[in-house]
Design a protein around this nucleic acid. Structure first.
Length: 184
DNA sequence: CATGGGATTGACT
DNA sequence: GTCAATCCCATGC
């Protein structure tokens, strides 16, 4: 789970990025922006997307390798009222079902770039002990133009908090309400 | 120093 | 389906 000051959710969707492929910011090598990606694993890489959103990654691999996992969706666990206040929405599945949504819900901003995810206000922790490990649905990454064919998106099967477009085989029925989505 | 392109979202046709 | 909002930073002159 990802926790920021007591507001938290179980990670239900991720994407992998690696300096060997051009969709990764680290592909350009070591720069001011990519320094965290090449740094110590277990730290955050937070960057501004489209001038609007902060997106959060967990840096992976040894120092010198530019790699990270983008956290794309959470299932809200604690602090749901603070999430609702920050998001201006009430429906649970709308609070953290996207990489920009979850940073808004958890109030993750650029100042948390390079934060130690094991020992800082922003932490990655084990999921609740009574929670079974999810089955994973693998798909291609969302919103990128380069290396778009790599199957490096991982979603928890059957979880409604996964961002759209839902990958094939997620196992969640579309919301009903119109004839086009109704089955038999 | 000027430019351009996003690992997105929400509103609108 | 289309489109704008708006920041950071890599790149090129």
């Amino acid at each position: 789970m990802l926790d920021h000051d007591g507001v938290s959710g179980v990670i239900v969707e991720t994407e992998a990025y690696h300096d060997s492929e051009p969709a990764c910011h680290a592909y350009v090598g070591l720069t001011a922006r990519t320094r965290p990606l090449f740094g110590e694993p277990g730290h955050a890489y937070v960057y501004r997307s489209y001038g609007i959103h902060a997106l959060v990654n967990a840096v992976c691999e040894e120092e010198g390798v530019g790699a990270a996992v983008l956290i794309r969706a959470l299932e809200p666990l604690a602090g749901v009222e603070r999430m609702r206040a920050r998001r201006g929405l009430t429906r649970l599945e709308e609070l953290c079902s996207g990489p920009g949504k979850l940073t808004q819900a958890l109030d993750v901003e650029l100042e948390l770039n390079e934060a130690d995810l094991l020992d800082s206000p922003l932490r990655i922790l084990p999921p609740p002990a009574d929670r079974p490990a999810p089955e994973l649905v693998v798909g291609t990454r969302i919103g990128i133009r380069k290396a778009a064919e790599l199957p490096w998106r991982f979603c928890a099967r059957g979880n409604r908090n996964v961002s759209k477009p839902w990958p094939p085989g997620l196992g969640v029925a579309p919301r009903r309400g119109n004839a086009a989505t109704r089955v038999g």
